[in-house]
Simulated scan of single mutants.
Amino acid sequence: MAPYPAYPVPADEDQRLRELERYGILDADSDEHFDRILDLTAAIFGTPIVAISLVEADRQWFLARRGLAVRETPREMALCAHAIVHDEVMVVPDARADERFRSNPLVFADPHIRFYAGAPLQTSGGHNLGTLCVIDREPRELGPEQRELLHRLAQLAMRELELRRLAHLCPVTGLPTRHTFLSIGEREFERARRDQHPLSLLLFDLDNLRLINNRWGHLAGDQVLTDVVQLARTFLQPQDFAARLGDGEFALLLVGIQRDQAMALADGLRTAVAHLPGVYSHSDFRLTISGGLTVLSPSDQRLSDLIHRAGRALELAKGNGRNQIASLFDGP
């Protein structure tokens, strides 16, 4: 046990960690945009140490830093682990006089933190991924205007994180693509096995996207893709994950719901898509989807086991006439 008080855990910790993973920035290299934000922050506040820190389950990792030799620290040592619990700037005028930190190795040894101020890096959903922090080896105070300025700089850093995330999304649907799905899906798979909670995978295809493109044009096809994705989002919970795998192929990873609930959701989506209005509304054309559903089994070793099983179920749905959800399960 650490010889200093335990860090507080945010109420949204599980989803906060999910959001952090889904930004795809952990262990990534810094770049000139983050470096410029740090240079600006250091010039404004005049501190020898500035950093953009991301707080994972068991470590604090620095996406960008000035004045620090290390790239990460254990979470229990991180002052930022305390700062992410708050939505406002956290200021520690003198860490040696603060009972939370006086026995912390980062305070009584290198880098000898005395003053700390951290502004949370908050997502649009209200989850604090980490902080933009300024650190000094001498006690200091921070006035209201300086706190607000640090908060605004943290928003600027968060904007850069968001731009990085958007660069990896499908430009038509705004969904992650296959590569990201495989990476995030594997993490959810491992989490579900570790925590022994349910996990379902629905793969579905737009049955007649090619016909839409040929009859009404690709702009109409793109609008259909956008409309279907917006509709699908209404069926999902924050912890779920959606991705576009191909032209008209999508994946929905459903976290924490049982088999019957997942099947009801999948068929509800199928029914809703069939009533979705579009450019084809005044014709005899009807938009439909075919889907393949499976759930996590004790014998599954990797996410690919679910993908293979859901893919086989999807082929069954297509072979049986389309506009239906087929399911394949491994085990009872």
Rank of each mutant, 00 (worst) to 15 (best):
M1K: 13
P3L: 13
P3M: 05
P5F: 02
A6N: 07
P8E: 00
R16C: 10
E19F: 03
L20S: 02
Y23Q: 04
L26H: 07
D27I: 01
D31L: 14
E32L: 12
E32H: 13
H33V: 10
F34G: 04
R36E: 09
L38R: 02
A43M: 15
A43W: 08
T47D: 06
I49D: 01
A51C: 12
R59S: 03
L63Y: 07
R65Y: 05
A69P: 05
R71G: 11
R71K: 11
E72V: 02
E76I: 05
E76T: 13
E76H: 14
M77K: 12
C80H: 07
A81D: 03
A81L: 09
V85N: 05
V85A: 11
V89I: 05
M90D: 00
V91P: 00
V91K: 01
V91D: 02
V92A: 01
R96Q: 08
R96H: 09
A97F: 00
A97Q: 12
D98R: 10
S103M: 06
F108K: 01
F108R: 03
A109L: 04
H112M: 01
F115E: 03
A117P: 00
G118A: 05
G118C: 06
G126Y: 04
N128A: 14
L129D: 03
I135N: 02
D136R: 05
E138T: 10
G143Q: 07
P144H: 06
P144G: 04
E145F: 05
R147A: 03
H151E: 14
Q155T: 06
Q155D: 06
L156P: 00
R164E: 12
L166V: 08
H168D: 08
H168L: 11
L169E: 06
L169A: 00
C170I: 01
G174H: 05
T180N: 13
I184H: 14
I184T: 15
G185Q: 01
E186A: 14
R187I: 13
E190W: 13
R194M: 11
R194Q: 10
R194H: 14
S200I: 13
L203W: 00
L203K: 06
F204V: 11
L209G: 05
R210A: 12
L211W: 10
N213L: 03
G221V: 10
D222A: 08
Q223I: 03
V224M: 13
D227N: 15
Q230H: 15
Q237G: 15
Q239W: 04
A243W: 03
G246P: 05
D247S: 11
D247Y: 01
G248Y: 04
G248R: 07
L252W: 13
L253A: 07
L254N: 07
V255Y: 09
G256D: 14
R259I: 09
M263D: 07
A264W: 04
L265I: 11
L265A: 11
P277G: 12
P277V: 15
P277F: 09
V279D: 06
S281Q: 15
T288W: 06
S290T: 06
G291V: 08
G291H: 01
L293R: 12
P298Q: 07
P298W: 09
S299C: 09
D305W: 06
D305A: 12
I307D: 00
I307Q: 08
I307Y: 04
A310G: 08
E315I: 08
L316V: 09
K318S: 05
N323G: 01
I325L: 04
I325S: 07
L328Y: 02
D330Q: 15
D330P: 01
